[in-house]
């Protein structure tokens, strides 16, 4: 029988690192932070557009992930997804409290990201499905893309999107639904083919 191989922290899967963090293994925590700090900070910076706020929120996201590592359930999704969702929610909270004025639709980093006009240099697009998703974003109408981006990255409700875009509520809802559904269908087609 093969002997179990000791795993370097740097190579350990996310779940193992979170398990280590849950029992107070600081080294596992540092490796986890190093692994994701650029993505977490990048997401916070993209939403907040303020380096100071982004660093505070990114720190909060890691602290929260670390202190709640024991409740992470890998059956419900990947660690990266969990961490980025925490980051997104904290960013939206900070955005609403510190910058209560409505988001300027012309100042949407992620609408630009989703435009398909350029590929972000550092986006994590190694995953084929993410590449498909990025391409799918480029393929949907701009109004739907903006509605999805406002909701997904800025937490804007349909009512808020309707006001920002000066369209009826029903139109905003349709744009959100059609945009997201088209993205799902595009990725599903690729997966099925």
């Amino acid at each position: 029988m093969a002997r179990p191989r000791a795993t370097s922290s740097d190579e350990a899967p996310d779940e193992a690192l979170l398990a280590g963090m849950a029992v107070g293994d600081e080294r596992a925590g540092v490796v986890f932070v190093r692994r994701y700090q650029r993505r977490v900070y990048g997401l916070a910076l993209g939403i907040l557009r303020d380096p100071g706020m982004a660093e505070d929120v990114a720190q909060d996201a890691f602290v929260r992930a670390w202190t709640h590592a024991s409740v992470f359930d890998p059956r419900r999704g990947a660690a990266a997804t969990w961490l980025l969702t925490i980051t997104r929610n904290l960013s939206i909270d900070a955005l609403r409290v510190r910058r209560p004025e409505p988001t300027d639709p012309g100042d949407l980093a992620f609408a630009e990201l989703a435009s398909g006009e350029r590929l972000p240099e550092d986006a994590v697009l190694a995953d084929e499905m993410l590449t498909q998703l990025h391409n799918a974003l480029a393929g949907i109408p701009e109004a739907q893309r903006r509605a999805v981006a406002l909701a997904a990255f800025y937490g804007r409700s349909a009512q808020e999107i309707a006001e920002l875009e000066s369209v009826p509520l029903g139109t905003a809802k349709s744009r959100i639904r059609m945009g997201l559904t088209k993205l799902r269908d595009a990725v599903s087609v690729e997966e099925a083919s």
């Binding site: 910076l45 997804t81 997904a152």
Partner: peptide, 9 residues
């Protein structure tokens, strides 16, 4: 998955 499209920094 959309969140994973955010550019790293």
């Amino acid at each position: 998955d959309l969140l994973q499209l955010a550019p790293a920094a």
